[in-house]
């Protein structure tokens, strides 16, 4: 402990707390720690608890975990909600369909995002800064409204169909709205900047000397790209891909607005289970199942981010 100077306004409180065995340092650490414990970590334990409860017509609508009986406390838990997820094909289909949609959206984002990130990273200043701002700018406008904009573009009598009909490319309107294609477009559109930014951060550090050395040793541009550029930018590729894949898995707004009634996504199922069916235990079990699915992608993301950090 450092000595306290007189006339310090902190003196009284600090010395008082020191007597209690607390110092300012511990207090400073405690503030964010307690907030996150209470409002981030404990909620997951509550979800876990309710996922093994039984639905009840009560307030709140689930059975208690601890029951006070005549011979003390007992625990009442059931895995019925998880078994239910396996019995009803709706949940398994939603699970698989979420993985499929998230996976292909990630691939499309990478195919568009990689060339864009490469182009921006190789642009001279101030063009580079300007292009970067253009990538980040949509972040600051409403996500909900940008997804909504696609309804006007994709629907039967929307902008896209009117444009293509006028050009004579198609004879009758394309049906895109309320299909999985609209969901893909929405996800790629929303998360493309998340793919581009880590790729850019990686590619901008790429040493030109390595590319020149490869060319000097006789490799063509394509061979150099696949053998030098891609392996060196792997942390950026993984980080960007996970930043698209993870939110896409739990996405609700995009399938709700652009998808059709048969677009199955796990985030939408959780929402319906909670708000329409009011089955809190099953909704909790769906949330836990979704978390389990995300464990590996989240670990991959952290690994890629620490690699990115090391090379900086």
């Amino acid at each position: 402990m450092t000595t306290l100077r007189s006339s310090s306004p902190w003196r009284l409180t600090a010395s008082g707390l020191a007597k209690l065995g607390l110092n300012g340092r511990a207090l400073v650490i405690a503030v964010p720690m307690i907030w996150l414990l209470v409002f981030f970590l404990i909620p997951f334990l509550v979800v876990l608890k309710i996922s093994v409860a039984e639905p009840m017509i009560a307030r709140p609508p689930y059975s208690p975990l601890f029951i006070e009986g005549q011979d003390g406390w007992s625990i009442k838990a059931t895995l019925g909600n998880y078994a239910y997820l396996f019995e009803d094909s709706l949940y398994i289909n939603a699970y698989l369909s979420s993985i499929k949609i998230a996976f292909f959206s990630t691939v499309f984002s990478l195919l568009i995002g990689y060339p864009m990130a490469y182009y921006i990273a190789r642009s001279p200043e101030p063009k580079r800064s300007l292009l970067l701002i253009l990538i980040v700018l949509p972040f600051w406008t409403s996500f909900l409204l940008r997804v909504y904009a696609w309804i006007g573009i994709l629907k039967g009598k929307g902008v896209l169909n009117a444009f293509l009909l006028k050009l004579g490319v198609i004879n009758e309107p394309l049906i895109i709205m309320q299909t999985d294609i609209a969901v893909y477009i929405g996800i790629v559109y929303t998360y493309l900047p998340f793919m581009i930014l880590p790729l850019y951060a990686n590619l901008v550090k790429l040493d030109d000397a390595l590319l020149e050395a490869s060319a000097d040793l006789g490799a063509g541009p394509i061979s150099t790209f696949f053998r030098i550029t891609i392996p060196l930018s792997l942390p950026g590729i993984v980080a960007g891909s996970m930043l698209v894949f993870i939110p896409a898995i739990g996405e609700f707004v995009i399938p709700a607005l652009l998808g059709g009634p048969d677009t199955l996504m796990i985030g939408k199922v959780l929402w319906t289970e909670f708000f329409s069916n009011r089955d809190w235990p099953v909704a909790s079990a769906v949330a836990i199942a979704m978390l389990v699915l995300l464990v590996i992608p989240i670990m991959l993301l952290r690994l890629a981010q620490s690699k990115q950090g090391d090379s900086a």
Binding site: V38, F39, I42, P43, F44, V46, V47, I50, P60, M242, L243, I246, P247, I249, G250, E251, F252, G267, L270, W271, F274, W280, A283, S284, A287, M290, L291, L294, I298, L301
Partner: peptide, 17 residues
Amino acid sequence: VMPEVITGLSLLLLFVA
């Protein structure tokens, strides 16, 4: 990186509890 549906559901269940 937490999906919003999970954050929302878990906080609501906490508030109710």
